[in-house]
């Protein structure tokens, strides 16, 4: 059973699992939101490279974010969050608790260094909480180890590439839309016909970040990471990404920024760890991320079992209806 559970939601190598022999190292992103300047170069570079249509010219009134969310025509989205002192203190505190708890996501696998925990704690005690801050974070598809979207796709349009990433083949997708509710991160979306002019590419088809598959196959960096001026978006072998994320969060903790925390690095989370990992400065939901994502398929066996029982019940009901005295 253990093996099968891992296959559905635990730590595993998704690339070999999906039949690639001898694939290259799994690729991924590390988005360090602590150095993001919200310039949106990543958004624009992505739209340029992938020739994505403009999708709305409205002021949303949510700080400088007029993009809103990831979607069929937004594969990178920069979130802007304005916070005042008490909220920052709360974030620092909740992060501090994580440090105390020794969460696996908070430090490298080989265990915490006790001095570090001590340091972080004192730094919090002494640290000055600013009275205002403006968080910025560039969101993207997580390229999950266990990708809900890919699991449920009935046509095989979604597939796992040799780089361990999850990509839609737009010429195969029939727009059934099943991947949309199946993504625990609300990433993938169908490009709806009625929002765009006829002739817009990929209408009616599900769209999401490809991790620039067309660039990776040419040994190029994804457009968004290439454009990011501050290296807030780092691209590389996923293992290296996770390692540098862990290193960075340690540094921040050592400097008293206990609000810093990692997202997606835990391979025992509900999606087997993500291919895009993040360093956040507050709870995930503050950024519009689910706090404890789980791939829907994790419970698929149980779901099918229930459906099987129900099917039996249905038969029993019918038999019951016809049974007995004939009339």
């Amino acid at each position: 059973m253990g093996y099968w559970t891992n296959q559905l939601s635990g730590p595993t190598n998704p690339t070999t699992d999906s039949g690639w022999d001898d694939p290259p190292a799994r690729k991924g992103f590390f988005t360090d939101t602590s150095i993001c300047i919200g310039c949106k170069a990543c958004e624009v570079a992505c739209k340029e490279w992938n020739a994505i249509p403009e999708d709305g010219l409205d002021l949303l009134g949510s700080s400088y974010d007029n993009t809103g969310s990831l979607g069929a025509s937004t594969l990178r989205q920069v979130a802007f969050i304005e916070q005042s002192g008490d909220r920052i203190a709360q974030a620092r505190e909740s992060g501090g608790r994580l440090v105390d708890l020794g969460m696996p996501a908070m430090r490298p696998a080989d265990g915490p260094s006790p001095e570090l925990v001590g340091q972080a704690a004192t730094a919090v005690a002494e640290g000055e909480v600013p009275d205002f801050r403006w968080l910025m974070s560039s969101d993207v598809c997580k390229h999950c180890t266990h990708a809900g979207c890919l699991d449920v796709c009935p046509t095989g349009a979604l597939f796992r590439t040799e780089f361990g990433t999850v990509v839609v083949q737009p010429d195969v997708c029939n727009g059934c839309g099943y991947c949309v509710p199946a993504c625990p991160f609300g990433v993938i979306e169908r490009r709806e016909q009625d929002h765009f002019e006829a002739g817009t590419p990929n209408l009616g088809v599900a769209q999401k970040c490809t991790l620039c598959y067309d660039r990776l196959t040419d040994d190029q960096t994804p457009a968004c990471a290439q454009a990011c001026p501050t290296t807030s978006i780092k691209f590389g072998d996923l293992d290296d990404m996770v390692a540098s994320a862990e290193e960075r969060v340690e540094t921040l903790h050592a400097n008293g920024y206990t609000e810093a925390r990692l997202y997606g690095t835990d391979r025992h989370d509900g999606v087997g760890g993500t291919g895009s990992v993040f360093l956040l400065l507050d709870e995930p939901e503050v950024y519009g991320l689910p706090p404890d994502p789980q791939v829907p398929t994790a419970e698929l066996p149980a779901m099918f079992r229930q459906a099987g029982l129900a099917a039996v019940a249905m038969l029993v009901m019918a038999v019951g209806a016809f049974a007995g005295r004939r009339r």
């Binding site: 949510s62 974010d65 979130a79 509710p181 993504c183 519009g288």
Partner: peptide, 13 residues
């Protein structure tokens, strides 16, 4: 619990 009250997961289309 949220980012400007916006949905975290997407409703089925």
């Amino acid at each position: 619990e949220s980012y400007y009250g916006r949905q975290v997961v997407k409703p089925a289309p």
